[in-house]
């Protein structure tokens, strides 16, 4: 790490102890427990559990409801990532270009970062409410009878739009900082080589932004998978019923409401694998990014 390091028989361990203790008790133990539970069938009345091998996984993966949830999660993730990334990129490019009011635009476009997903969810529910929501009214005037919580498509629509709204600021911040770190000399060289501003963007600026984009893509996938829990919970008003939900929400519903510990754990483990792959991929990306610079 450093060329010169301290050595001390106790101090480094003492410094690490709080972190390690918390990691051990609240991370490693539950993680191991989740994996273990996924191989057992819990007795619903609390009379112990039986080892069932991969049974829970088989049940989960062959369950049609799980398949439907997985399909929705995929679509949801793709839509959220696509729209929040592309809108944020558009805004960042414009914000990078304007001179007058650049600071104000930056503030106006990023502050929503601080809003919690469930609060965003509540706003979404209110805006699209049957009786008082102005956006429902707007949809109705366009001939669309929007019914959140009743029509799955409409519910999903509100989830996506709320999730995108909440995620634009993060993407905007990163894209803007990415754009601002493109060296001025490179932009000037491009301006001399290429007349068309649009072409210049796609051939010079965009490739230089690609590492930021890849990195954000992973961030957005993780966000859509996990951090939208609050949005989903609020938009379905805590009653999944026939509504579309994400995989993480299903883990919660099956584990805490359905008391299907084994099944819920198996789902957790599947998500763990997914997250693990994403993270490994992300670190590979970051390494690549270091080489770019």
């Amino acid at each position: 790490m450093k060329r010169v390091q301290y050595s001390n028989p106790i101090l480094p361990y003492a410094l690490l102890l709080p972190q390690l203790a918390i990691v051990a008790v609240f991370f490693l133990w539950p993680a191991v427990e989740a994996v273990r539970a996924s191989f057992y069938l819990e007795d619903p009345f609390g009379f112990g559990s039986t080892f069932v091998g991969l049974e829970n996984f088989k049940d989960t993966l062959t369950n049609s409801q799980y398949a439907r949830t997985a399909r929705f999660t995929l679509i949801f993730t793709v839509l959220v990532a696509f729209f929040s990334l592309s809108i944020a990129l558009l805004l960042a490019v414009k914000a990078d270009k304007v001179i007058r009011g650049a600071g104000s635009y930056r503030t106006l476009l990023m502050w929503v970062y601080a809003i919690a997903p469930p609060v965003a969810g509540l706003l979404g529910v209110m805006l699209f409410d049957q009786h008082i929501g102005p956006l429902t009214e707007l949809a109705r005037s366009l001939g669309w009878n929007l019914q959140v919580g009743v029509t799955p498509f409409d519910t999903a629509f509100v989830m996506v739009i709320t999730a995108v709204w909440k995620q634009i600021p993060v993407n905007f911040i990163f894209f803007l900082s990415g754009l601002q770190s493109v060296p001025k000399s490179v932009q000037e060289a491009a301006a001399i080589d290429c007349r068309s501003g649009t072409r210049r963007f796609w051939t010079v600026t965009f490739p230089l932004l690609a590492p930021t984009g890849f990195f954000l893509l992973i961030i957005n996938i993780t966000y859509a998978l996990f951090d939208t829990f609050g949005i989903v919970d609020l938009v379905v008003k805590g009653e999944p019923g026939n509504n579309p939900i994400t995989l993480v929400y299903k883990v919660f519903v099956d584990g805490f409401r359905g008391n299907d510990l084994g099944g819920s754990s198996a789902q957790s483990v599947i998500l763990m694998v997914l997250v693990f792959l994403l993270t490994v991929f992300q670190f590979r990306m970051i390494e690549r990014r270091v080489h770019y610079n």
Binding site: F27, E33, T222, V251, F252, G255, S268, M272, V275
Partner: peptide
């Protein structure tokens, strides 16, 4: 592993 995937244990 985010908290969400090991929430139950």
């Amino acid at each position: 592993l985010p908290l969400e995937v090991r929430i139950l244990p």
